[in-house]
Design a protein around this nucleic acid. Structure first.
Lengths: 220, 220
DNA sequence: GCATACACGTGAGGC
DNA sequence: TGCCTCACGTGTATG
């Protein structure tokens, strides 16, 4: 099934016996000719666009028409969703209502030497918050590779990607995560006395006093 | 041209005179029948996908097939470009090689009371740079609304959206831009003694000494 | 009448 | 061989 499709040669256009011999009047025959020619032009237009689509789709050179169109349908669906997602996500999303700090430590690159940290902070915004968070990383000897911040309606959401400057994880990734988390918590929620509240496992602590939820995720 | 296309009724499937009367053997006739039926199924598959595409495209209900396909081509092109743009833009792009600080002051919202500033900084990365820039805004009484930072290969690119905390532009937007620009320059390029170099107009200064280009843009 | 667009059945060629 | 896909010319409907 599915012959080469795009490289197929049409048979030499067997000219429909135009004149004489058949039970056709001359005008009938000519009108039939212009008709078939118009129809061929129509086919060429359609197949031209089909060929263009084939070139635009991945691995579509051997697909038959129906399969090609079906893949176009999926591709359009996929692209539409992707465009819609990224259109609302170019910057960090609208700051969520829940207060939350997440810290995840991972190794990037082919060698497992480069340790990266992804940290997010959602909290009430206030003057100096951003500076404070940035300073916290500096104090920990972490370099900021990427950062995104959105502030809206008194709420702020931050995303940071950091790396350990000396490439040394020290006491291990879990301990590093805990340290970062505590440093961020001190800046983001200074009013809350934060001890070493149960980092050992993923947990959610509902602080009834200020109606805040602090959650700590060891994985994502 | 272009009849309703999607609501067209096929003529009642004029069954090709199957048996008898024609100069066909019975097996020939039957094979011809299964052939034409297979061909119809094939057409139905293709047209089914075309109908799906028609539903997905805007205002395509009256298009003929060729026009529909041509609009699908444009749509896919458009979506691909959009997806590619936003895919590489969710974070700030790869840090450019040229050193540059841009500051633009504008009024956001329906009322012209809210003054915003968009500032970008491209420079060599170093520990504490991010903290320094964030601190510069803090020192100027500016609140950071949005921020993006990318650091790659020793280069860093920052985008900030700020607002004046007290909503007061003070000596006017141009003066504010100048102030912000100078503060950022002091952090980003401390080795360069930066005077009040010609803010008055958009300009580019090529500093031959360190092969850096500082450009200042009053508009974007 | 003319132009256009569609569905159809058929022949040809590829696995 | 049979099954599949394609291009073709035709009949027919619409404007």
């Amino acid at each position: 099934m599915a012959s080469t499709a795009s490289t197929r040669q049409p048979p030499p256009t067997a000219t429909p016996e135009l004149s004489s011999s058949s039970g056709r009047s001359a005008t009938e025959a000519r009108s039939l000719k212009v008709h078939s020619e118009a129809e061929r032009r129509r086919r060429e237009r359609i197949n031209g666009h089909l060929a263009t689509l084939r070139r635009m789709m991945p691995d579509a050179s051997q697909m038959d028409k129906a399969t090609l169109l079906s893949s176009v349908v999926s591709q359009v669906r996929h692209l539409k969703r992707k465009a819609a997602e990224t259109a609302t996500q170019p910057l960090t999303p609208v700051p969520p209502e829940a207060n939350e700090i997440t810290v995840r430590c991972y190794t990037a690159g082919s060698d497992d030497r480069t340790t990266c940290i992804r940290a997010t902070v959602s909290c009430d915004d206030r003057p100096g918050l951003f500076t404070g968070l940035a300073g916290a990383f500096r104090g920990l000897g972490l370099r900021t590779l990427r950062a995104e911040l959105a502030s809206l309606g008194g709420r702020a959401h931050h995303v940071f990607v950091l790396c350990n400057e000396d490439g040394d994880v020290g006491a291990g990734p879990r301990a590093l995560e805990r340290t970062v988390w505590q440093a961020l918590a001190q800046v983001a929620f200074p009013e809350t006395a934060f001890g070493g509240t149960s980092w050992s496992k993923r947990q959610r602590i509902l602080d009834a006093g200020c109606s805040l939820m602090y959650s700590l995720r060891a994985e994502i």
